[in-house]
Computed example of a mutant assay.
Amino acid sequence: MTDPVIELRGVTRRYDEGPPALHDVSLTVQPGESVAVLGPSGSGKSTLLNLLAGLDRPDAGTVAVAGTRLEKLGEAASARFRRAHVGLIFQFFNLLDDLTVLDNVLLPAQLAGAPARVSREHATRLLDSLGITRHAHAYPGRLSGGERQRVAVARALINRPALLLADEPTGALDTASGEDVRHLLDELHHSGQTIVLVTHDLRLAEACASRTIRLRDGRVEVAG
């Protein structure tokens, strides 16, 4: 049987003396699943995403991604793991305005020490598949919101991650651009990419997710 991409067991995370941001959360995600995490503000969605990315550590429990126990890694090892195994898509793109589209996409591969020629060929294929080849040498500031999010997706995929994490990927987009990103994430899901997306966009969850998880007050309320 194939090992899960994500395996959380009894995860709790506190930030102060109040209620925990996450409390005793267990979750398993198999390869090729697309899971939408829903819930009101303050429910623990962002904390969950940060734990899966190795950007935060639990106070109790275990977090395994692609067979690696993230809570056991130091900061430098977490960064190396993230570059190699996790792709991140953010609400506000986080592109570097002084780099071209192509150079933005290539940056994670360069940081990971991947061969330049192979990375450039892969980046070119990604831009082509995402319909933004014509913008390869443009700067992000000249692109629409939807186009910038496509660049961000290409950047997230450049190192062929085991896991793609998306944090409100349609939150900063107009209706048409949001629809484009919904189609794109649905295509990635059907191509076999494992995805966890945090969203308030029910249409996005319905279009792209094979399963939904609802968080409330740091606990899993409904898993489907």
Rank of each mutant, 00 (worst) to 15 (best):
V151N: 02
R148L: 02
R150S: 07
V151S: 03
A156K: 12
I132K: 10
L126Q: 10
V151H: 07
G146Y: 04
A156N: 06
R148A: 08
G131H: 02
A156P: 01
A136V: 13
G131A: 11
E147Q: 15
G145M: 08
L127V: 12
R142F: 04
L143K: 05
A138W: 01
D128K: 12
R134D: 08
G131S: 09
G146E: 09
Y139W: 06
H135N: 05
Q149K: 10
A154P: 00
G146A: 12
L143H: 03
G146M: 11
P140N: 03
Y139M: 04
T133A: 14
L126R: 09
N159H: 11
R155T: 01
G146I: 04
D128S: 15
P140R: 13
N159D: 07
R155N: 04
D128H: 14
E147T: 13
D128M: 12
A152L: 07
P140G: 04
G131L: 13
A136R: 15
S144V: 13
R142W: 07
L130I: 07
G141F: 00
A138E: 15
A154D: 04
G145S: 11
G146V: 07
G146R: 10
R155Q: 08
A138N: 09
S129M: 11
L126S: 13
R155I: 04
R134K: 14
G141Y: 02
H137G: 13
H137W: 06
G141H: 02
H135S: 14
S129D: 15
A152T: 04
L126P: 07
P140E: 06
G145E: 05
G141A: 04
H135V: 01
G141S: 05
S144W: 05
R148V: 06
H137S: 15
P140T: 00
A152E: 01
L143E: 07
V153P: 00
D128I: 08
A152P: 01
G145R: 14
A136K: 14
L126H: 07
G141I: 00
G146P: 10
G131W: 06
N159K: 08
